[in-house]
Design a protein around this nucleic acid. Structure first.
Lengths: 311, 311
DNA sequence: CCCGGACACAACCAATGGTTGTGTCCATAG
DNA sequence: CTATGGACACAACCATTGGTTGTGTCCGGG
């Protein structure tokens, strides 16, 4: 199916006749006739009843029309998403269903008229390069790994500390606990597959291990959260960490437990990064929204690596 | 833009290389290469970075990808909307923003997985013909005009009585009333443009006039609800009727008044019509939902023409 | 250094999709 | 009843598109 054909269909439906639609599209009436005929052949139904003074939609045509309009709208947005200059605000998040995604959903609810594109880049290096080249406008990251400071033209503000929770299966030794302290976790195996060395995630968990003597196994590729949850549910010896705001597709019948961690509560810091000179108007709106939405909270009793930007 | 091209883009993005995408689409690698190149030329951006062992999405490509997927989803639904056999449930309503539309929105919320197409046919004759031919599956109507009984193969059930309210501008004589009785309306001009003679609407208002001696002017074409509201707002001598559940695009600064009508309250009856032998599985779900959602209410103190189906 | 895998370019060809010219149908006016 | 004008379809023709095969280039790995 060709979008020019769909456009022709909508024009003809609006005009009520092929002639006028043809004039609007700057083609001949015969071209419109052939396009509509081809569309009808493809779909296998008649879309118009031809009369002596125009063409009226059949019922099938009436049913098809809103879908055709929607198709053109979506195509419009698709093209706009890569239009150089005045494209939608492009924001990089760590993962879908992460706390940053939640913040972006909140922003979208508050400003539904602002066009957004959310994507997930590989690591902070890529994100910073993309910010500097203008390929993206903002990035939610844990800011900097020790020894690699941010370039001077990248600005940053801490927007959210996400408490980590322990996730266990029902047979795990800590499964019955209402909450656990970090000290209690020593000796338990914590499994975080898919953590790529050198990324901000790796630096975070390295520091967590160094600080509290935990056993974190970052081995193995990430087969997706489904596989991770399956394993955690079935393996009494394994637990994993998970952001408190992380929305999971909760598997049924697995009886997984989310257990708060205290003394201190490890928090994963989310910062917003952007380029100093980025002129995108929606970027200012996003920064203002985040400043308002993420009110300062009490950092007492929480832990974050000392290399993160202070709030 | 051609949807085959978009499909090719998505396949290549998923596969990570043109070769495999080509195999999947049953074309040559060169064809994929040319399609992607054409898409990049149309959009004016590079979508892939070509490497020796495949093609990876650029950031523009990553931004474009979800839009491309959405485009294919919408196209899929568009085609499905006219697929003979197993197409979405097609329901005819009197008008968008009518009470029937509200019922359909409720049904959609309750059963989001059921595919729906809502359309607005011209009159009940058309609707009945469409029901009998199978072109639509259900219709919300006021059922039958006196002297023209429904065919035997069309079944019907009364689902909703919508109270009528008076709509006036601020300078109208009744503008200050909290409610008005039907008797009070005698002598006031009520304007209902766009009522087509012979339709169920016309029959309804004819009966209302005959019963209570109102002055209803059905003259003039319908220039849309905006024009109607403009006129009502500015003309002290005119008022109009409007369904209580009708959601209007309320014009700002017009200070329109909605005034309940009592003694009795004229109600506009909405019935669901369907063909006795229609096998569409979603039709049963719709009927069950409507039976549950539209609990019987008190008909005392209301008026409807005596030719409507009793509840 | 060479090989294999992957993408791009060139040449060629069938099919698509446009144009002009013409025919048919139908509503309306005389 | 007939003439007329408007609107769509069909036919013939042609430029362009979009596919194929054949070949070149680039790059990573043995």
């Amino acid at each position: 199916m060709d979008l020019d054909t769909v456009r022709t269909f909508v024009a003809a439906a609006d005009a009520g006749q092929f002639q006028e639609a043809a004039a609007e599209l700057a083609v001949t009436q015969q071209a419109v006739s052939k396009r509509i005929a081809a569309l009808e052949r493809d779909l296998g139904v008649r879309l118009f009843t031809r009369t002596a003074r125009g063409a009226r939609l059949t019922i099938d045509g009436q049913a098809f029309l809103p879908h055709a309009r929607e198709l053109l709208r979506v195509a419009e947005r698709a093209v706009a998403s890569v239009r150089p200059g005045r494209r939608p605000l492009r924001v990089d998040v760590l993962a879908s269903r992460s706390a940053a995604s939640g913040l972006m959903r909140g922003f979208h609810r508050a400003y539904p008229e602002i066009e957004l594109d959310v994507l997930m880049l590989f690591d902070i290096e890529t994100a910073v390069a993309a910010l500097r080249s203008g390929a993206i406008d903002a990035s939610f990251r844990a800011v900097a790994v020790p020894g690699r400071p941010l370039p001077e033209d990248i600005e940053t503000v801490r927007v959210l500390d996400e408490p980590l929770q322990l996730l266990t299966g029902p047979a795990h030794a800590l499964a019955g606990a209402r909450s656990v302290t970090v000290a209690q976790l020593a000796g338990h195996r914590i499994w975080m597959p898919g953590i790529v060395p050198g990324t901000e995630w790796a630096a975070y968990y390295d520091d967590l291990v160094a600080e509290f003597g935990l056993t974190i196994e970052a081995t193995g590729p990430n087969f997706g959260s489904d596989a991770l949850l399956d394993t955690i549910a079935d393996t009494p010896a394994l637990a994993t960490f998970m952001g408190e705001h992380m929305r999971l597709v909760w598997p049924v019948g697995h009886d997984l437990r989310r257990i708060p961690v205290t003394d201190p509560t490890p928090v994963y810091p989310h910062s917003l990064l952007w380029h100093r000179d980025n002129p995108h108007p929606a970027l200012a709106a996003l920064r203002a929204h985040l400043a308002a939405a993420t009110a300062a909270h009490d950092a007492a009793g929480t832990w974050a690596p000392d290399w993160v930007t202070p709030r």
